[in-house]
């Protein structure tokens, strides 16, 4: 248990330090303004030092702690994690196709797919919600809030 917790903390702490070092090198590339003493890189660099110090302190405390933190491991072998990854993939695909396909069509496919991934097998309920919800949301946004969502290939029908 302690080893799992320590490993998780070392991973996240190391990632934070690498991120901080990357930010430092990016900040070095900022153009300098000769008219002011403290340039654009001052604050980010101070923050990077703080982040690295906090990361090292966290890792040291985790190493010296007698009882490690309890962590759920991130393992793709677990069905729960597979659900999360599938939903993320579906969300990214939906974001990519929202404009060309339309909010409504993309939303219908997305809702059906995600409710399926989450384990719902009540087909009528899934179809009903998948079809009605995006239409209702589109209508409310367009006619009540005055915001037109992407119409994609349906633009000749929805205009």
């Amino acid at each position: 248990m302690k080893q799992k917790g320590l490993r998780a903390n070392l991973i996240s702490g190391t990632a934070a330090i690498i991120f901080g070092i990357w930010v430092w090198f990016q900040a070095d590339k900022f153009p300098e303004d000769p008219t002011i003493t403290l340039n654009s890189d001052f604050f980010p660099k101070v923050l990077v030092l703080g982040l690295i110090a906090a990361s090292l302190s966290m890792m040291l405390i985790a190493y010296m702690s007698e009882k490690g933190e309890q962590f759920d491991s991130i393992s793709l072998r677990k069905p729960a994690m597979q659900r999360v990854v599938l939903i993320l993939a579906a969300t990214m695909i939906y974001a990519l196709v929202m404009k060309p396909l339309s909010f409504i069509l993309g939303g219908m496919l997305y809702l059906f797919a995600v409710t399926f991934v989450l384990g719902n097998r009540k087909w009528k309920q899934m179809l009903l919600v998948s079809v009605i919800a995006p239409i209702v949301v589109f209508y409310i946004f367009k006619n009540v809030l005055g915001i037109t969502l992407p119409m994609g290939i349906l633009k000749f029908i929805l205009r």
């Binding site: 969300t91 929202m98 997305y110 809702l111 409710t115 989450l118 719902n120």
Partner: peptide, 16 residues
């Protein structure tokens, strides 16, 4: 199982 995908859609729409 029905609520979570609807919240996700609202989140994306809200951001857009």
């Amino acid at each position: 199982k029905l609520l979570l995908p609807c919240i996700m859609i609202l989140s994306l729409v809200g951001s857009y």
